[in-house]
Design a protein around this nucleic acid. Structure first.
Length: 323
DNA sequence: CTCCAGGCATGAG
DNA sequence: CTCATGCATGGA
């Protein structure tokens, strides 16, 4: 790489890049909602460090991002500082790309809301964006996500990164990059299972890491049509229908992909199949018909709405009383 | 204690 | 093809 400098080498490099690292940048972001996006279940490793403040790894950089909502959120801003790793030479472009800030989510949501049932439960503001994450991180993350709780997914991935990822020092403590495929390919199953808490997914993670270490040309994968890419993903161990859709949507930005988990199944059933239990195929066909090329975005808004809304629907016992 | 989680692989029919 | 089952782990 050219034109980059490591933080901490200011003595030998007092150029603009280091000043940017200290000063940071501020970007207008419209309706974008950082918290809603980072807590929406598409990523697991951003760490909350304050009110609407997060740190996370993008490429070889650790960035601190603070959301500044203005008015009623229609003209917010994002304050970004690089706090570790490499200072990218085009930080603004990197942030716009990662958070997909150039896309008109407001117009997309407006179009999606022409579906009456969707409009009833969807938010009015297009706060959640689909991130552009590293494909390998997304692949492993969603293999881990299978039959698992989000808090535990986060802990497992944190341990995986601490054990196998490159350490980057920051004012917030050490942060770890996601492990490279070649490293996970050499991991011992016992360390994955007991050290990281992967349980029975240890085999899936290592086998998939090995497969990708052999064939990791994601630039080529990204050029494939979605059905071809989907088939390639399904060939990976631990990747089934649902996880493949997640990887398509969150790892390859295929916005038409439509993962159906238990929450989306409940949501779609409530909205479009009130009197029966549709199969996953039917749900996906329904989504494709109603939401088209942006079904994945619709799915993310539905997930947020139903998961936050119906989370505590425990069969509350008669005794025990109010809460 | 039981139940469940952004399911998958496997085997039976 | 569809359907049933086991699966590691830990929070509620």
């Amino acid at each position: 790489m050219n034109g980059v400098s490591a933080i901490g080498q200011r003595s030998s490099c007092e150029g603009a890049a280091s000043d940017i690292a200290m000063e940071g940048i501020v970007l207008p972001v419209g309706e974008f909602d950082l918290e809603a996006t980072l807590e929406s279940g598409q990523c697991f490793r951003w760490r909350r460090v304050g009110e609407r403040e997060y740190i996370g790894v993008i490429g070889r950089s650790v960035v601190h991002v603070r959301h500044i909502p203005m008015g009623h959120g229609r003209a917010g801003a994002l304050a970004v500082r690089v706090v570790g790793g490499i200072v990218p030479d085009h930080l603004e472009a990197l942030i716009i790309h990662y958070f997909d800030l150039a896309r008109d989510y407001r117009a997309i949501l407006r179009a999606l809301r022409r579906d009456a049932a969707f409009a009833r439960v969807a938010p009015r503001r297009a706060g959640i964006h689909i991130l552009r994450q590293d494909p390998f991180e997304v692949i492993i993350s969603f293999i881990v996500s299978a039959n698992n709780h989000i808090p535990r997914i986060r802990r497992i991935l944190d341990r995986l990164c601490a054990r196998y990822g490159e350490e980057i020092w920051t004012p917030f403590g050490p942060i770890y990059r996601f492990p490279r495929p070649e490293v996970l390919a050499e991991a011992r199953l016992g360390e994955l299972r007991y050290g990281c808490g992967l349980g029975y997914r240890d085999q899936y993670v290592r086998a998939t890491a090995r497969a990708i270490a052999e064939d990791a040309d994601f630039a080529r994968w990204a050029s494939w049509p979605t059905p071809v890419l989907r088939q390639r993903l399904l060939a990976l161990e631990g990747v089934g229908e649902k996880v493949a859709e997640c990887i398509l949507l969150f790892g390859f930005h295929r916005l038409e992909a439509f993962p159906v988990d238990v929450w989306i199944a409940r949501a779609m059933r409530a909205l479009y199949f009130p009197d029966r239990r549709p199969r996953v195929r039917e749900i996906q066909a329904c989504a494709a018909e109603r939401f088209g090329a942006y079904a994945g975005i619709a799915q993310q808004y539905l997930y947020a709405a139903f998961r936050s809304g119906g989370r505590r629907e425990r069969p509350s016992s008669p005794r025990g009383g109010a809460e």
